[in-house]
Simulated scan of single mutants.
Amino acid sequence: MFRRRRREQPEQAVEQEQAVPKRESGPWDADEPHPESDRIDLGGLRLPHNPDFDVRLASVGDQHVGVVVLYEESSLQLQALAAPRGSGLWDEVKTKILAQAKHLEEREGPFGSELAGEMQVDGAGRPARYLGIDGPRWFLLAVISGKAAVDDAVAAAYLDFIKDVVVVRGNDPMAREEPIALRRPNEQAAAGEAAEGPGLNPFKRGPEITEIR
């Protein structure tokens, strides 16, 4: 399980105290004012610390492409992707998901439009919710499955978690839908770590899940 990261550097904390967030909650962009708190630093994502959550990295080959959070017979998958400047990806991604799923319907949720229903895992149905959040030059896909997809009490803990995520897009050029590079908390981001990786396929099985202690 990931350990919490140290608090933001003093000079960063001072800047954030002076700059009041323009919104009540995130997900936050690293360059916008956001609440200072203990977060797990994974490079492209900074995740709020919740001792009840089991946080793991999802990898394809040597590249970390997402995060899996386990809690109360449920899972939350997070993946941050590069998006074009001035336009989001969620409408396009929703169309892709609906083209492959027969048991999902669109509805309004805490982040706007979302998809809810059932996903197929190893031939069996599993309750699921797909939430998409468009940020400045990034897109965050959150997939909640299991008990939390139908139990509001369990879902609330995941939604609060998502609302305090910080996305670190960086300034380097990236291809459309390229995964924003992640790393283990104790790794230094290497030059060129954000090389183009596999595109988004929320139904494709394959990423390896690794636990960090």
Rank of each mutant, 00 (worst) to 15 (best):
R137T: 10
L45R: 13
V20C: 02
M174P: 00
E196L: 12
S75D: 13
E177V: 05
E72M: 10
A30D: 14
P84L: 01
V168M: 11
M174A: 15
P179N: 09
R85P: 02
N171I: 11
Q100K: 13
V65F: 06
E108G: 09
A116V: 14
I180P: 13
E193T: 11
K147S: 08
D164L: 10
V67H: 08
E32T: 12
Q63G: 05
G26A: 07
T95W: 04
A194C: 02
G125P: 15
P179L: 09
G112F: 04
H103V: 02
D52Y: 10
P136V: 12
G117R: 04
D52K: 13
A190W: 10
E92T: 09
R56E: 15
L47I: 03
D91F: 08
P127C: 08
E15K: 12
V93W: 00
L159G: 00
K94V: 15
G112A: 05
G117A: 04
G86Y: 05
P127L: 12
L159H: 05
K147W: 03
A157N: 13
V167G: 05
A190G: 08
L70P: 07
P10I: 00
N186S: 14
A101M: 07
I40H: 01
A124P: 03
E36G: 08
E72W: 03
D38A: 10
E15Q: 14
A30H: 04
D31R: 13
G109A: 04
K163R: 15
E208D: 14
D152C: 02
D172T: 09
R169Q: 10
R129F: 08
V93G: 02
S37T: 06
G146M: 04
H34Q: 01
F53H: 05
G43T: 06
V167Y: 04
R23L: 14
T210F: 06
A157F: 08
A142K: 04
L200M: 04
G109K: 10
K204M: 13
Q120G: 02
V150R: 12
R56M: 13
G61C: 09
P179D: 06
G170S: 09
E193V: 09
M1A: 14
E36Y: 03
V167P: 03
G135S: 07
S75Q: 09
E11D: 10
I180M: 12
V167M: 10
Y71F: 14
A99V: 00
R6G: 14
R137S: 07
D164E: 12
A124G: 05
D91L: 11
A83T: 01
A155D: 04
R183P: 07
G192A: 07
I133G: 01
A58C: 07
E177M: 12
I144M: 08
F203D: 02
F2Y: 03
S145K: 14
P27A: 08
R6W: 06
P35I: 00
E178D: 15
P202D: 01
L45G: 02
V20L: 06
